[in-house]
Amino acid sequence: MRNLDPVNYVSPAIHSEDVQRIFSATWQLIGPASRLATRGDYIAVEIAGQKIFVMHTRDGLRAFRNVCRHRGARLLPEGTGRCNTIRCPYHQWVWGEDGSLLNVPFWGDDAEFELSDWALDQIEWRVWRGLLFVAIAPETAFDDQLGDIIAELEGEPIEDYTWVHEERLVFDANWKIYTDNFVEGYHIPGIHPAFHRAIEFEAFETTALDGMVRMTAPPRDGLFYRGKWMWMWPNWTLSLFNGGMNTSRINPVDHQRTELIYNFYFADTSDAAAEARAQTIEGNLQVIREDFEVCLETQKNYASGGYRAGPLSPRHEQGVAYFQERLRASRA
Rank of each mutant, 00 (worst) to 15 (best):
M1K: 14
N3S: 08
L4M: 12
L4V: 06
P6F: 03
P6K: 11
P6E: 00
V10W: 14
S11E: 01
P12T: 05
H15D: 00
E17M: 10
E17H: 10
V19F: 05
Q20D: 11
I22M: 06
A25T: 00
T26C: 01
W27I: 04
L29W: 11
L29S: 04
G31E: 02
P32Y: 06
S34T: 13
L36D: 00
A37F: 03
T38G: 00
Y42V: 05
I43A: 04
A44W: 08
I47C: 03
I52E: 00
F53I: 03
M55R: 15
M55F: 10
H56T: 10
H56D: 03
H56M: 10
A63M: 04
F64N: 08
R69W: 06
H70K: 13
H70Y: 10
G72Q: 06
R74M: 05
R74F: 00
P77M: 02
P77K: 11
T80Q: 13
C83K: 12
T85Q: 09
C88Q: 11
P89S: 08
H91D: 01
G96K: 13
N103C: 09
N103I: 01
V104I: 13
D110Y: 13
E112T: 15
L115A: 06
S116E: 09
D117W: 07
A119P: 03
L120D: 02
E124I: 05
W125C: 04
W128C: 03
R129K: 14
A137K: 15
A137W: 04
A141G: 12
A141T: 05
F142E: 01
D143Q: 11
D144M: 02
Q145D: 00
A151D: 14
E152W: 09
E152Q: 15
P157M: 01
E159R: 13
E159A: 12
D160L: 06
H165K: 15
H165S: 13
L169R: 15
N174K: 08
K176A: 01
Y178K: 10
Y178F: 13
N181Q: 02
N181S: 10
V183P: 05
V183C: 03
V183H: 08
Y186H: 09
H192R: 12
P193F: 03
F195R: 11
R197V: 03
I199Q: 12
E200G: 06
F201D: 02
F201C: 00
A203K: 15
F204Y: 15
T206M: 05
G211K: 11
G211F: 04
R214K: 15
T216G: 07
P218N: 04
R220P: 07
R220K: 15
F224V: 12
W229A: 02
S239A: 12
G243S: 09
G244M: 02
M245W: 07
N246D: 00
V253K: 15
V253P: 11
D254T: 09
Q256N: 14
Q256T: 11
R257Y: 06
T258V: 07
E259G: 09
F264Y: 15
Y265K: 12
F266D: 01
A267M: 09
D268K: 14
D271A: 14
E275S: 14
I281V: 15
N284Q: 10
V287I: 14
R289Y: 02
D291C: 07
N301V: 11
E317L: 04
A321K: 15
A321D: 09
F323M: 10
E325I: 00
E325A: 09
R326L: 01
S330E: 02
S330R: 14
R331G: 01
